[in-house]
Design a protein around this nucleic acid. Structure first.
Length: 686
RNA sequence: GCCGAUGUAGCUCAGCGGUAGAGCAGCUGUUUCGUAAACAGCAGGUCACCGGUUCAAGUCCGGUCAUCGGCUCCA
């Protein structure tokens, strides 16, 4: 979902914070993100004249992007949305127009059709749009009073079926705050009949001057969208489209979409043999293949080391628990619709003796461990870490490969701290996250502070606790000097949180790492520690997961690297490519050295054995010996396709000289090297 | 869950009323090869599933399931 463009913000632009506006801007990500940055196009706009498209190479990190909302492109797309509405209104009498803003990569218009429309009708609509555009309709702004606005909306002569189709526009009019200007945009043309034809729409604007400027556009898809983004409201039909200033840009955008599909983690995951899904296993339940499991293990190993350095202790907890645990935590009331169906244990009379639940979160288990003994202030902070697999019954339409699964493993930890320790511990956690993201090469992320939505009742605990927790998070952010946006309603049910948001190949936002401050679960579970004053006190909990989940993180990483993982992460780091059968043994011997378990040295020409393994030549790499009976070219092609970072070619020349032909995934042929040098090179890179 | 779309061999896709096709992968044989595809042969599909229309259904219609793009929700 393109959150920044939802109705509330559209209606109250003034209320937008700097951070929110930032996300409206054309997204200019670093190269790691590939397609979205490849164009390097930033649209610079200042209201008034046109055109002002300027290409800037490699926007790079830290650059303040130009403001998309003020750009000509933004107006062009907004006008394209109006053109869409005009065409639809002509082709589908009785359609009720709702709202049609520009969005990050185009525009949409929400409307209620008298009858459901199908995607194949888009061509027809697009054709009519093209015709209407060519008519050079002037687009004029007019400011009116509230009363005039109402009569314009209801005017049968102008709207065709004004009274009958005015519902949403009237609601939008009501939503315009008193004192704000009310404006309409009027598209006029003189028809063949000599009469004046108009399309007039309540709209803040701004727009381009004439429909003739809208030339390079395409309708993309149809989707359902709830009126005002609320499930309780009627679902409208949304038509998505995109528009550009030049045919080249449109072409390039469509091309980039194709490219993005190729780096989709679901495509690469299959190609690279990372994971799979099986219909008989179930929706959203991934099966990890050897290479994917290796990748997972590498990431787990990396984070475990980081955490050990920072005083975390491992714990392991089961996948199911009695319902009693979740009654106590509040999950039964606040999280039930996300939990899998319960398992009932029957006694000999067939009565339910206990109910078990597949765990949707790890926290209650860690809390039980904390509770299992008396704690002193000297013991705190207690930091329990677990790669805990949780199961959440996501709605069928929400599951998305490994980015949104029904079973996933969180790199979870819970810190039990004294109130005094809270801020330092929170900052420590954020630092871990920053270190992790840096190591993974994920530099393009946003920070979102999810707070309680005052209008919702889906939360536990008192407002005082919420205030304390929210203040702690905001205080830490300020102390760290981080840029962040505040998002009411994005808190967990037990507390506010700081989330790391990253975009996938298709430009969609995903919540990754998270840190949550929680005063409420300690209260519910009556957690205590004995303070210096010998009296019991209540600890505060920090929930945190730097990756968020292994599944989502690996999915994102796969897309960011387009499957070409850095050496330390690559499931297969080195492929040995013997040229002919007689080179296989040699290749195996070298593989053994690289793997760190050499048997007995290969004897070149029946004489010299391999150099002894020295401290410098110690290595533990993941090596694959490609002994398939294929030509070298074929082996290179195959291993290149599976994105193996290094290929070491072994032929007669190498056996004689005691070398390997080194080929790098990106740099190509690096020539012959001896094993010591290869190991040094690999060690330098991991 | 809702709106729209898709579902043909392990993978990518063609066929869209009249006897199931290609490339890659697989298997067998030949080839033993120096930086992105050696050659030949073979095998592989109740065309997602269930029902309907028709003389005849991958092909048309309805339902179910799964997947994809949105909405809502979320790590």
């Amino acid at each position: 979902m393109l959150r920044p463009y939802d109705l509330s913000r559209y209606n109250s632009r003034k209320a937008q914070s700097q951070e929110e506006r930032g996300s409206h801007e054309l997204w200019t990500s670093p190269k790691a993100l590939g397609f979205w940055s490849q164009s390097g196009i930033i649209y610079i706009g200042s209201s008034g004249t046109r055109p002002r498209t300027k290409k800037i190479k490699s926007p790079g990190l830290g650059r303040k992007p130009m403001n998309y909302e003020e750009s000509y492109l933004y107006r062009l797309r907004h006008s394209a949305a109006h053109l869409l509405a005009q065409a639809v209104q002509e082709l589908y009498p009785g359609v009720k127009l709702a709202i049609g803003p520009p969005i990050e990569n185009g525009f949409y218009y929400d409307m209620e059709f008298p009858e459901a429309i199908r995607e194949e009708e888009l061509g027809k609509i697009e054709k009519r749009m093209k015709e209407l555009a060519k008519l050079d309709q002037r687009i004029e702004r007019k400011e009116v009073t509230r009363e005039e606005a109402k009569s314009l909306i209801l005017d049968d002569a102008i709207q065709g079926m004004g009274q009958a189709v005015a519902d949403y526009k009237l609601q939008l009019l009501e939503a315009v705050p008193a004192g704000d200007a009310i404006s309409f945009y009027d598209q006029k043309r003189t028809g063949h009949d000599g009469k004046e034809h108009r399309f007039i729409d309540l709209c803040r604007g701004p727009h381009v001057d004439s429909t003739r400027e809208i030339k390079h556009f395409k309708l993309m898809s149809i989707a359902g969208a709830y009126w005002r983004g609320d499930v309780k409201n009627k679902q409208l039909t949304r038509i998505y489209g995109t528009a550009f200033e030049t045919p080249e840009e449109l072409e390039q955008y469509l091309l980039m979409l194709d490219e993005a599909k190729k780096r989709d983690h679901r495509v690469l995951g299959k190609e690279l043999g990372l994971f799979m899904f099986s219909p008989v296993v179930g929706t959203g339940l991934a099966l990890w293949l050897p290479k994917g499991a290796t990748l997972r293990n590498t990431m787990i190993d990396f984070l475990q080391r980081e955490q050990l350095k920072r005083g975390y202790e491992p714990v392991v907890t089961p996948n199911i628990a009695s319902i009693k645990l979740y009654e106590k935590s509040g999950h039964i009331i606040n999280y039930r619709d996300k939990m899998f169906p319960f398992m009932e244990d029957l006694n000999s009379d067939g009565e339910v003796s206990d109910t078990f639940i597949l765990k949707p979160m790890n926290c209650p288990f860690h809390i039980e461990i904390y509770r299992s003994q008396m704690r002193s202030y000297r013991d705190l902070p207690v930091r329990y870490a677990e790669f805990g697999t949780v199961y959440r019954y996501e709605q069928s339409g929400e599951v998305a490969g490994i980015l949104r699964a029904r079973g996933f493993t969180q790199d979870d930890a819970h810190l039990f701290v004294t109130p005094d320790q809270l801020q330092d511990e929170f900052i420590g956690v954020v630092e871990v996250i920053q270190a992790v993201l840096e190591k993974l090469g994920l530099t393009n992320f946003r920070v979102r502070v999810g707070t309680k939505d005052p209008a919702s009742d889906k939360y536990i605990g008192h407002d005082d606790n919420w205030q304390l927790a929210t203040d702690a998070i905001l205080g830490a952010c300020k102390k760290l000097g981080m840029d962040y946006e505040v998002s009411p309603g994005d808190a967990a049910f037990y507390g506010p949180k700081l989330d790391i948001i990253i975009k996938d190949a298709l430009g969609r936002d995903w919540q990754m790492g998270t840190v949550q401050v929680d005063y409420n679960l300690p209260e519910r579970f009556e957690l205590e520690y004995i303070g210096e004053d010998s009296k019991p006190h209540r600890p505060v909990m920090i929930h945190r997961a730097p990756f968020g989940s292994l599944e989502r993180m690996i999915g994102l990483l796969t897309e960011q690297y387009a499957g070409a993982f850095p050496l330390w992460l690559a499931p297969t780091q080195v492929a040995m490519l013997p040229i002919a059968d007689r080179h296989v043994q040699y290749a195996q011997e070298i593989a053994a050295i690289l793997q760190g378990h050499p048997s007995h040295g290969y004897q070149a020409n029946g004489e010299a054995t391999w150099p002894p393994i020295t401290a410098q030549s110690q290595s533990r790499f993941r090596v694959f010996v490609d002994d398939s009976r294929e030509t070298l070219g074929k082996k290179i092609r195959e291993n290149q396709r599976s994105k193996v970072p290094y290929m070491l070619i072994c032929g007669d020349k190498d056996m004689e000289a005691g070398t390997v032909g080194v080929r790098h995934r990106e740099q190509g042929d690096l020539g012959p090297m001896n094993i010591e040098d290869v190991i040094a090179r690999l060690n330098a890179e991991v």
